[in-house]
Amino acid sequence: MNVDRRGHLNKYLPFSLVDGPGNRFVLFLQGCNFDCVVCHNPYTIDECNGCNICVDLCPDSALTLGTSTKPDVNHFACTDCDICIEVCPIDSTPLSSYVTVGDMLDKIRPTAPFLSGITVSGGEATLQPEFIRDLFAAIKNDPDLNHLTTLVDSNGSAAPAVWDMLAPVMDGAMIDLKALDADTHLRMTAQANGSVLASIRYLAGLDLLHEVRLLIAPGLNDSIETASKTADWLRTIDESLTLKIIGFRKNGTRPVASHIVEPDAEMLTGIANTYRAAGFSDVLII
């Protein structure tokens, strides 16, 4: 465990009601290996390349040419207007920062009495496995923090070796399954889904699969037949799995998602009922 280990952080939230059970401190790590059409925080995908286009366009002059590859940020001047994110020619942000495990422990400590646990999300959290491991290990070894559960919210692309590295200090993983069908998955994420399916099976075997999240995007993966096939496959893993049916939301998405509509409650209920009929009792619509 190394408290000086650095991670690339997009941002953190001291309180989150939507990233796992109970109130949780959430870290969103910068960088993702998927390029999901439905991504609602695309500025977490890429690393800043230092083009500095945003520097002159910041209305609060909060950005200056940096000494490293990305602009320096004056957080006192920044008003969170997000113009830098809008003008970014890639899917990134100048507002991310490099933090150490120790930095994050200092932020977590005062919030600990209010929390059920910590969730590391992203971006894709597992692209920085050593940072997660050292953060979780530090939490588990701290008498003031070891009541906190440690969860990872992931696209499931990580290799078994990554899960093995995290397993001793991680209480569970929440895995997104965008599509069971290989072609659909490729269309939705620009990546194959073999590693995702393997992660779901592998984590279940380690008893670390906290839940599987099924994002429903009309026109892409919303048919009852798709749900039925996915349920058949998930049943081969574990019928007691927790499933979250998450309706696609336009908020924050890129123009590439402009043709996708938000699913209505009826559609989500139909899909949830398909999973319930297949034997899953713990199905929640979000």
């Binding site: 009601l17 939507v18 059970p21 109130n23 009495p113 209010f114 929390l115 059920s116 979000i286």
Partner: peptide, 13 residues
């Protein structure tokens, strides 16, 4: 959808 979160916050408060 997450009442336990409010329990956490009340206890923390």
């Amino acid at each position: 959808r997450n009442p336990q979160a409010m329990v956490d916050i009340i206890r923390g408060a």
